[in-house]
């Protein structure tokens, strides 16, 4: 159930990539003559290189039986606080580690390290200030982690509702955090992100009494874009609503452990 989106993408990927193989320099499948130019059929996903690396990461996570959750949202939605509180409640029952991506600063890693979980900070300015974490960046970050010693790896992606949705990193599931201070129209404005995620957290619900946020409209829109996606309404500050969210993670992690 959690993997519905990843499987759909895998199908898409194999359809476009596998028949071509890695025949970069090989003979093209078909050629067609046009006046003045010769057309060469290519049919390759532009993100092929990323998808191949993501599949390698995925095989590694499978071999080590680590459940990988890719956490995405706009900046300031409360990802890091949500993660701090989530780690505190899951550990030590579940052995966790975190990869956190930011363009600059190690502020988030410093906050998360207090949980006792191993934390690897990625600053994408080394990689050209990228707006997302790509599969090869995750692969590099894995060098700093002992996968055999963990059950759950959470990747806190760069705060951005556009680009991270396009890049597979080899994760099992994606969670999007939407905070009530952002406005209820965010899902409609960024449908790809909300379509590609497997679970949504509606955060900062402790602020609802002070805002004009139309909670029902937000939930209805999420349901239109991604019917039946679990939505957990939480406050990372007060930990209200955390139990169903934690239960979802525990179930997902257990499902990947050996029987």
């Amino acid at each position: 159930m959690f993997l519905s989106n990843r499987n759909a993408k895998a199908l898409h990927h194999s359809h476009f990539h596998k028949p071509q193989g890695k025949e970069a320099g090989g003979a093209p499948a078909m050629e067609r003559q046009r006046s003045g130019t010769r057309e060469i059929q290519v049919v390759r996903r532009v993100l092929d290189a990323n998808d191949i690396m993501a599949d390698r990461n995925r095989q590694r996570f499978q071999a080590e039986q680590v459940f990988v959750l890719n956490m995405m949202s706009s900046p300031g939605s409360g990802k890091t606080t949500t993660l701090q509180k989530t780690l505190a409640r899951l550990m030590p029952e579940i052995r966790c580690a975190v990869i956190v991506g930011d363009i600059c600063t190690t502020n988030d890693a410093d906050r998360l390290a207090a949980s006792g979980a191993p934390v690897v900070q990625i600053n994408t300015d080394e990689f050209g200030g990228d707006c997302h974490l790509a599969a090869h960046v995750i692969e590099k970050a894995l060098g700093g982690l002992d996968l055999s010693a963990i059950d759950l790896l959470i990747v806190e992606n760069i705060g951005n509702l556009v680009c991270p949705a396009e890049f597979d990193i080899g994760e099992d599931a994606r969670v999007v955090v939407l905070s009530v201070t952002e406005g209820e129209d965010k899902p409609a404005k960024y449908p790809l992100m909300f379509r590609e995620c497997d679970v949504a957290l509606l955060n900062k619900i402790d602020l609802l009494p002070y805002l004009d946020f139309d909670r029902q409209l937000a939930i209805d829109t999420l349901g239109e874009i991604h019917p039946h996606m679990p939505i957990f309404e939480i406050s990372a500050k007060t930990e209200a609503g955390f139990e169903p969210w934690l239960a979802w993670i525990r179930d997902a992690v257990r499902a990947k452990l050996p029987a």
């Binding site: 759909a8 010769r38 996903r45 532009v46 239109e224 874009i225 019917p227």
Partner: peptide, 30 residues
């Protein structure tokens, strides 16, 4: 962005297109 079948209200869908980011061909000058 409404991903529910307008006929039967089912939500288990296959996306036939819409997620492409593919190079389909290149044309080389003769």
């Amino acid at each position: 962005p409404v991903f529910t079948c307008p006929v039967c209200e089912g939500s288990d869908l296959t996306l036939e297109s819409g997620r492409e980011l593919d190079i389909t061909s290149i044309e080389i000058a003769e």
